[in-house]
């Protein structure tokens, strides 16, 4: 019996990345339940760590993995469109809070840009990293566009976006419960502004309303940030 050709086939098959992602996610969910929903057992965090462990352990390249995993990633778009449904369920709340929401979005977007650049500069990080930090709080496709536009490094920007999203998703529940900020609307909007889609996925599990407002805030924050970053940059002479 010779298993080498079989293993070679497996490596080239999209089923590997697809199956691995589903299995890692399922295992992460199980762990999360066993840990009674402990924030550190966040399913995105544990799921991707499991995938990374298998890729490194079996010598599978990220490109080979993505052959199958891209089908899961492809569904991100349609799922984002679907956020319109829980949002519509909250139509009356949305109408009532329209003005406070707009002000919060504007202030939140500015906070997102300035906090990253400010802290980065305080830590003495180089210029090009500071530029790549500016779109850190927005959803990946917008972050790539902003980073390219202002001369940052898109790959670096994506990495910052994802690390921020995971950190936000892990910390949001304990932080907001402790500070008594865990109102669905407040938590949802703040999470959408600070931790985009990964945060949205997290708070959606806490409440559909929080998830809906996170999705809305994520989209609008991306738009506002794309407009604000070049303006802020003009003021800062970076």
């Amino acid at each position: 019996m010779n298993v080498t050709p079989a293993l070679d086939w497996l490596r080239g098959s999209p089923l590997l990345g697809l199956g691995l992602t589903l299995a890692a996610y399922r295992l992460a969910l199980w762990l999360n339940r066993r840990a009674h929903g402990h924030p550190l057992t966040n399913s995105v965090l544990i799921g991707s760590l499991l995938v990374i462990a298998v890729l490194l352990g079996c010598g599978i390249s990220p490109a080979e993995y993505m052959k199958g995993a891209q089908f899961i990633q492809l569904l991100l778009g349609p799922a984002t469109v679907g956020l319109a449904i829980p949002l519509y369920h909250n139509l009356s709340r949305l109408k009532r809070a329209a003005l406070p929401l707009s002000l919060t979005l504007l202030a939140g977007s500015l906070t997102g840009i300035l906090s990253a650049v400010g802290l980065g500069a305080a830590f003495g990080l180089p210029h090009q990293i500071l530029l790549s930090l500016m779109p850190r709080a927005v959803t990946t496709p917008i972050a790539i566009g902003i980073a390219e536009h202002i001369g940052g490094i898109p790959a670096l920007a994506v990495t910052f976006v994802i690390v921020s999203g995971i950190f936000g998703a892990v910390i949001v529940k304990p932080l907001f419960s402790r500070l008594r900020l865990d109102d669905d609307l407040v938590m949802g909007v703040a999470t959408g502004i600070a931790a985009h889609g990964i945060g949205t996925a997290r708070v959606f599990l806490l409440s559909e309303t929080a998830g809906a407002f996170a999705g809305l805030a994520m989209g609008l924050n991306g738009l506002v940030t794309a407009v604000l970053v070049p303006i802020v940059l003009g003021f800062m002479h970076l």
């Binding site: 589903l22 995105v44 799921g47 995938v51 993505m66 829980p86 990964i198 997290r202």
Partner: peptide, 19 residues
């Protein structure tokens, strides 16, 4: 579908190892 929104982010997050 949205109940499994987290699943859809795993490929991108796992891709961070490249960087």
């Amino acid at each position: 579908l949205l109940g499994h929104f987290s699943l859809l982010f795993i490929p991108a997050c796992a891709g961070v190892i490249v960087y």
